[in-house]
Design a protein around this nucleic acid. Structure first.
Lengths: 215, 215
DNA sequence: CCACACTTACTTACTGGTTAGTAAGCCCGC
DNA sequence: GCGGGCTTACTAACCAGTAAGTAAGTGTGG
């Protein structure tokens, strides 16, 4: 017997299409994050929203498309968090990276989702592989640009390919630390280790001590 | 009609139990490497050896046990490659790490298997998670010890927790670079970037320039 | 040296479970 | 009253694991 007296809640009625899609995307992020894409099923996702898996397919057509929208959704949320709505450059970028690491230590789910999908994406023909590869490429571009800016500020001439090498190393250390932290949070201080590693790489690249001050 | 004249070849007859198990382990490494553990099926593994999936289960009992043996097999092969049969310490360890990275650039399959399984292992209740976590713990122990040795050699006193932080960063950067390299081999020079990053971290930790000379 | 007993290495066939995706229809709210 | 949101019901594929049978090898007693 459904309770029809329920009407004080703002929307016990029916969620709009946009609301439902958002709910499903959030649920899918959790499911793909905790179980991976292949092991996480549409039934799992649907259950979290309180519908059947066919309902999910009604909104997204296929599991692959759902994954795609989850990834775009994550990007959108990330950009939203960035109040300025634009990616900072120079030293601000590295400050932002360390800040993100500190925030990440408090939201295991997101970190797990990212780690699982990234790992899975190196399998042959994985639907997320191009997304992850492009993401890496964009990040390398932004970070190497920031490294060049810092070098210019300090009038340092860098060897050919050095900014790119440093950028790849910075991204690598962040991802790798997340893996270790997920498997053993006691053993790794995510924020501290990330800050330390990025400072190390920048110091070695620029030839003089670099400190990333807390904003 | 089987050719009984064939006897110059050591075994056209029937492979021994040990031989078959080895074949299956190699096949499973390839399959789990290219498809992941969950997506890679026993049928896939069996097909590569030319038997049925029940034959695989005859030798290994269950898929979980097969994975376990694959991981131990990988360890065994790695140790075999190390001619001294023992893990080096001090600067030799870091030389060994860079050498490994250089070798890895020529064996994509192994790197892929490691990356996929590590990523998958952070999912809830994954059969490989304890193995990966322990592997990380052991590596952190060995590398932080090597860092302490280098510090002693140079009469440097390190802050509390610094060797562990450096060790985690070194492992992280190796894993992270592998991911980027797998997704875009053109964009990342695995050996060069690994050497650069490790040198950076050691230099920052020890306070003086560290170079890892080619053996 | 060979027959008989036994073991090993599988295969075939099946079970129970889970999966993504499809089709058709119901029902609520505008 | 009708259309979008959803369910129920289904399919076809695939999965790990089990059971039972078979052929080929191995060891042994005579």
């Amino acid at each position: 017997m459904p309770d029809t007296t329920e009407q004080s809640a703002p929307r016990a009625k029916r969620p709009t299409r946009a609301q439902r899609r958002e709910e499903i995307l959030a649920a899918a992020t959790r499911v793909f994050g905790s179980k991976g894409y292949h092991q996480g099923s549409l039934v799992d996702v649907a259950a979290q929203v309180g519908i059947t898996h066919a309902g999910v397919l009604h909104h997204f057509g296929s599991k692959d498309k759902l994954l795609w929208e989850v990834l775009e959704y994550r990007d959108r949320v990330d950009v939203q968090d960035l109040e300025g709505q634009h990616i900072p450059g120079g030293m601000d970028l590295f400050r932002h990276l360390v800040t993100t690491a500190r925030q990440n230590a408090g939201r295991r789910g997101i970190v797990q989702a990212y780690a699982v999908l990234t790992g899975e994406s190196v399998t042959d023909g994985h639907p997320a592989s191009t997304w992850v590869a492009e993401r890496f490429a964009v990040l390398r571009g932004e970070i190497s640009q920031a490294v060049r800016e810092l070098a210019d500020e300090r009038s340092v001439t860098l060897p050919e390919g050095e900014p790119e090498r440093a950028a790849a190393a910075v991204i690598a250390v962040m991802d790798g630390l997340q893996l270790q932290w997920l498997l053993d949070p006691e053993a790794v201080d995510l924020a501290a280790a990330t800050g330390f590693a990025i400072e190390s790489i920048l110091t070695a690249t620029l030839g003089s001590t670099v400190r990333i001050t807390n904003p």
